[in-house]
């Protein structure tokens, strides 16, 4: 396998891990985020600093990066997710900008805007694949469990959810914490992949991109998120020459998907035998939805 192909595969899997994190929050719990680049930044900077300045092995460093992202997510979620409405969406922008500003100004630790070069390239294909498989397994298990059902209840009707005995703010915070952990891990692996990180990589465009791929793939579908990120990552690679149109296309995709197919590519379907049966028109697959009365 050529270095180039290997690189693309690693990138696909890293983006996939991040997309699963966003999907859990936005797709399965119904909370829109515009600041997930912050958790990516926390993961990569923690990993970079721990490995370079403290000589820690990369594995605990990546895991600590994910954990720190999770803790920050929890702390951000506590006040904002108690409220309905768009409080989290706005707070997430604020959070992402603040974290970027802190990284940019905390020269002594983060090396400021110039970034951190020379990170050990520990993110090899087998490593990434192992992380990806384990985390994908966890994500798919989670959505098919009591916790997944609670998330979906919060998403579909938070009033009904609380009158079915769910402490909805608690589940929203849980969802955000797990989501931040996934994205933090992706950040750590990313640092070990490109070996050079800079605050500007984690700006609002990155946040928007992370959410866009999930919306594109399908809100409420884990495999949709993976499909969305695969397509967008590959298209981005292919269209590098016309990169000035990239953001315009992202924007248009978001609007057009919302107007014509708000469920995204896969809707709430997961890729699997059930979807296949439905595609070939055999008996209506169990657990699949049709449009409600309104």
């Amino acid at each position: 396998m050529s270095n180039y192909t290997e690189g693309i595969l690693i990138l696909l899997m890293i983006n996939g891990i991040a997309a699963m994190g966003v999907s859990l929050l936005t797709g399965f719990t119904g909370i829109f985020t515009l600041g997930h680049a912050a958790y990516l930044a926390i993961g990569s900077y923690t990993t970079a600093i721990l490995t370079l300045d403290y000589g820690l092995h990369w594995l605990p460093a990546v895991l600590l990066g994910g954990t720190l992202a999770m803790i920050i997510g929890y702390l951000v979620g506590l006040p904002t997710l108690k409220l309905m409405g768009d409080y989290y969406a706005i707070a997430s922008i604020g959070l992402a900008e603040s974290i970027r500003l802190i990284i940019e100004n905390w020269q002594s630790v983060t090396n400021g805007a110039r970034g951190i070069p020379g990170i050990d390239t520990f993110t090899t294909l087998p490593t990434t694949a192992l992380f990806f498989v384990v985390m994908a397994y966890g994500a798919f298990c989670l959505i098919n469990s009591r916790i997944g059902r609670a998330f979906k209840a919060c998403r579909d009707d938070h009033v009904a959810a609380s009158l079915l005995g769910f402490n909805t703010p608690r589940y929203r915070v849980l969802s955000l914490s797990i989501s931040a952990f996934y994205v933090g891990i992706a950040g750590g692996l990313y640092a070990g992949f490109i070996s050079f990180i800079q605050p500007v990589m984690f700006d609002m465009l990155k946040s928007t991109e992370m959410t866009s791929v999930v919306v594109f793939g399908g809100l409420g579908s884990m495999s949709g998120a993976l499909l969305g990120t695969t397509i967008i990552t590959l298209v981005t690679e292919l269209f590098r020459p016309i990169s000035q149109y990239r953001m315009l296309i992202y924007g248009l995709v978001l609007v057009l998907v919302m107007v014509f197919r708000p469920e995204g590519l896969l809707g709430r379907h997961e890729v699997g035998p059930a979807l296949f049966r439905q595609l070939i028109g055999r008996h209506p697959a169990p657990q699949r939805e049709e449009r409600g009365p309104h």
Binding site: D86, T211, V215, Y250, V253
Partner: peptide, 12 residues
């Protein structure tokens, strides 16, 4: 949520 996402798209 759909309106929110569409507005983000329009902004871009």
């Amino acid at each position: 949520l759909y309106l929110l996402i569409a507005s983000m798209g329009m902004s871009i």
